[in-house]
């Protein structure tokens, strides 16, 4: 029964159940066809739609692991997409690959700056993360609209379109980008000591300080990483719709991202984190969205479902709840 105890068992089981339930409503759900050397099918579609959430989610995972939270991700998405579209729109030739790459780089660079801003507020000024990132959350969409002058900026750039809607080696480019960032995050945290140090800071800030860990630099790093992830997600989103919509881009994605992180087994109080869990959580949320559509029940019910998931997960994580309701004694160290 040990696999049942695995922290990703239940999310994985729900994902499988959701996927399976689709079979009854659309028989071809699991079929994957090859068209022009590209893979098509509902599963591929779910992955493609998950890409921005996966990106934002892994950034959020590292932030939450340090005991923080980043509410500004949606705004950062809007800003990065807006800047990229603005620059592409100004190109003489919108199909210039170099121009598009530079525009994307500018979007990501601006995100990086915003990440430094968040990180500095939290680590240097010492403002609570939820409040510190609230500032950019509020102001960010205004900044994005400032960049686009309040318009929805449409671009007709084939190379830019590739990021969100293109295919390469048979898979959607956005999925590959997300996979690439996940890989980078895994390498960065598990192949170096970054993961260990982040978990130590989130697990016990005092003990970490006395072990010589400099939390300040780590904290700034995770907010920067989160902002970069959000920036890339913003590019994918805006590329997919070939425009920059400052209001729609990443609307409420911070809540979905937090949800994905929590579903993935990372505690909101910080400490141990699981990038794989977050990816699973993000895919689960998108599958839920797709499933409700295919079953034919109103899309809005997903909000109710999310509410229930948040409540259940929080109650299960709450020591007070376990003690009061489940009466499961917390594990006590064996006496020496």
């Amino acid at each position: 029964m040990s696999f049942v105890r695995h922290r990703l068992f239940w999310p994985a089981a729900i994902l499988v159940a959701l996927l399976a339930s689709n079979i009854f409503f659309s028989s071809g759900f699991f079929s994957i066809t090859v068209h022009d050397g590209h893979l098509y099918g509902s599963i591929i579609d779910i992955l493609r739609r998950s890409a921005p959430l996966i990106l934002v989610g892994i950034g959020m995972t590292l932030v939450i692991a340090t005991g923080g939270i980043d509410l500004s991700v949606g705004s950062v998405m809007a800003i990065s997409g807006a800047l990229a579209c603005l620059l592409i729109g100004d190109l003489d030739n919108q199909n210039s690959v170099t121009g598009v790459l530079l525009a994307c780089a500018a979007g990501i660079a601006l995100s990086l700056v915003l990440g430094i801003w968040n990180g500095a507020l939290v680590a240097s000024i010492g403002i609570q993360p939820i409040i510190a990132t609230l500032i950019l959350m509020v102001a960010g969409r205004g900044i994005a609209q400032l960049i686009t002058d309040g318009q929805i900026l449409n671009v007709t750039s084939a190379p830019y379109k590739v990021i969100g809607a293109g295919y390469t080696i048979a898979l959607p480019v956005s999925v590959l980008i997300a996979a690439g960032m996940v890989a980078i995050a895994v390498v960065l945290t598990r192949r170096t000591a970054l993961g260990l140090l982040i978990e130590a800071v989130g697990g016990s800030p005092t003990a970490s300080r006395l072990a010589g860990i400099q939390a300040r630099r780590l904290t700034i790093m995770v907010y920067v990483f989160s902002a970069i992830c959000a920036g890339i997600a913003g590019l994918i989103y805006s590329s997919n719709v070939s425009s920059a919509d400052s209001n729609a881009a990443g609307n409420l994605i911070e809540l979905d991202a937090i949800l994905a992180v929590v579903i993935g087994g990372t505690r909101l109080t910080g400490g141990r984190f699981s990038l794989a869990g977050t990816v699973l959580g993000a895919v689960l949320i998108e599958t839920l969205n797709v499933t409700t559509v295919s079953i034919g029940i109103p899309v809005e019910t997903t909000l109710l479902f999310k509410a229930i998931v948040v409540i259940v997960l929080c109650l299960v994580q709450s020591a007070a709840f376990r003690a009061k309701v489940l009466r499961r004694p917390s594990r006590v160290g064996a006496s020496a």
């Binding site: 809540l255 019910t301 997903t302 909000l303 509410a307 409540i311």
Partner: peptide, 24 residues
Amino acid sequence: HFFQVEPFIATLAGMFLARGIALL
């Protein structure tokens, strides 16, 4: 209060719930 859930999270769930019911 009873389950010592962070206000941020508990009211986030409340937000999903209220908005979800309204949309429904």
